[in-house]
Amino acid sequence: MNENKHSIETRALSLWYGEFQALYNVSVDIGHGLITSLIGPSGCGKTTLLRCFNRVNERYGNVKTSGEIRILGKNIYDPDVELIELRKSVGMVFQRPNPLPISVYENVVFGLRLHTPAKELTRARLDEAVEEALTDVGLWDDLKDRLKRKATDLQLEQQQKLCIARLLPLKPEIILMDEPCSALDVEATRQIEELMLELAGRYTIVIVTHNMAQARRVSHECLFMLMGELVEHSRTEDLFINPADSRTADYIEGRFG
């Protein structure tokens, strides 16, 4: 269904938390199968923008939006959009890994169990989904004998990979990552970044990061935001080497933020 080369398109997107306006007229096209990073100082609206893409913002209280967000060409504010279906296609990974306090196996099939009638969920189908998802995130070899272990007992970086694996059985198109490495050490961060690069192409990945070096390492395109506005959007190399806007230049050189 997606002939479009953009997975996410926003048009004049504005957002208010109560009286406070967090996003101003954001219009952006996020490329299909690319890793796009959102950078900017704290409070610039990057996490808010990220949370718009699966409308999970609405769970956090009094939120009002205007403008348009098209995911795979479909305006997600259309009345016929089912949030459950949207969120299946647009998964999210958080700053702190949030595996559920159940087994590794059950974590991976959690989404499948939610969305598939119990009758259609044969053991074989579940087993296959677990192997496929864990293989995709590089955990299968480590964990194949320990699938019954409690996910909350894993190392942090394994937990974070598991949280990514948990999205995959639902066949998402887009994976949103909200500072996925900020609770991890250097080695774990490297592993997650490698994983992101492997997953790119098959999935469109949008990552919010405070770490500019990380944005530079992993992303194909980069969005710089400031005070709820999109300042600049370009290929990562261009943004870091030849920023078009002086505010971007000031930020990446560390003059503020």
């Binding site: 699966n54 999970v56 769970r59 949030l83 459950i84 279906e85 949207l86 969120r87 299946k88 998964g91 999210m92 958080f94 702190r96 949030n98 595996p99 559920l100 306090p101 959690f110 989404g111 939610l114 969305h115 949280c163 948990r166 999205l167 639902l170």
Partner: peptide, 13 residues
């Protein structure tokens, strides 16, 4: 923890 709830919302629960 809220994190558990977020984990659910974001797989469409």
């Amino acid at each position: 923890p809220v994190a558990f709830r977020q984990a659910c919302w974001n797989v469409g629960a």
